[in-house]
């Protein structure tokens, strides 16, 4: 089916990118491993949709597609939350920079006086 090829291509590219970023050191080893596992696992599910169905049966959810969707939504929620936390941290860092610059400027004018 076409969708299988589309998805497999996407996962292959994603895996390639993940590995490249990991080699460049832009990603921690654990993160690279988790992301790779996700792409490879997803590829397996695409190749053997019955895997998702048995996973759904294990969870007690009707169809394989439903189980995949539930897991995907939980994962997305978690990732969005992580991004929120990261943004909050970046905001705090920006504030520290702005404050330091403002106080340093003050220090230099006070010395001039």
């Amino acid at each position: 089916m076409v969708i299988q090829y589309v998805l497999l291509t996407f996962f292959a590219i994603a895996l390639g990118l993940t590995l490249r970023r990991a080699r460049q050191g832009a990603m921690s080893r654990v993160a690279a491993f988790l992301w790779s596992a996700l792409w490879i696992g997803a590829a397996f599910v695409v190749l053997r949709p019955s895997l998702a169905t048995s996973f759904a049966g294990f969870l007690g959810v009707g169809r394989g597609v439903d189980a995949v969707l539930y897991v995907a939504i939980i994962a997305l929620f978690y990732l969005v939350f992580r991004i929120f936390l990261r943004l909050d941290k970046i905001e705090r860092d920006i504030t520290l920079l702005v404050r330091r610059q403002s106080l340093e400027k003050r220090g230099s004018t006070v010395e001039k006086e």
């Binding site: 920006i94 504030t95 702005v98 404050r99 610059q101 403002s102 106080l103 400027k105 003050r106």
Partner: peptide, 20 residues
Amino acid sequence: VLIHALNRGQGAALRTGTEA
């Protein structure tokens, strides 16, 4: 007068002034 180079919010400004 101290000046923030970006808008950082009331709490941030308060803290800058307090440290000064």
